[in-house]
């Protein structure tokens, strides 16, 4: 077995992933890319769950189950989001996030 990677390193990776996701969510104007950025953030969180489970509570499986739940829900959420995007595109011929501001009324 190779030398264990220290927890800190793993957390640095997930943090970077998370904030790349945040950055993408805030800067991209295309709704699909924004959805991908959200997935990135979710995956960073998933990894965090797994790492904490592995390093702090070895032998238990709660963290893994959480990850699985999140993956399942993220899949459902993506399906709904893409359905909305398609309808949106049919209506306004665009999936640019800046053009979608009708909900403020």
């Amino acid at each position: 077995m190779i030398e264990q990677v220290p927890l800190n390193h793993a957390l640095i990776v997930t943090t970077m992933m998370f904030f790349i996701g945040v950055y993408g969510f805030l800067t991209r104007k295309n709704l699909i890319t924004m959805l991908i950025s959200i997935e990135l953030m979710l995956n960073a969180v998933n990894l965090n769950f797994v790492f904490f489970d592995k390093y702090l509570y070895p032998g238990t499986l709660e963290g893994h189950f959480f990850s699985l739940f999140i993956i399942a829900i993220a899949a459902a959420e993506a399906a709904v989001a893409i359905a909305i995007f398609i309808n949106l595109y049919r209506n306004i011929r665009s999936i640019d996030v800046e053009e979608v501001d009708k909900m403020k009324y």
Partner: peptide, 14 residues
Amino acid sequence: FQSGQVQKYAIIFI
């Protein structure tokens, strides 16, 4: 504040 722009809301939130 209430611009309808999701990303502005997100920036404020974050």
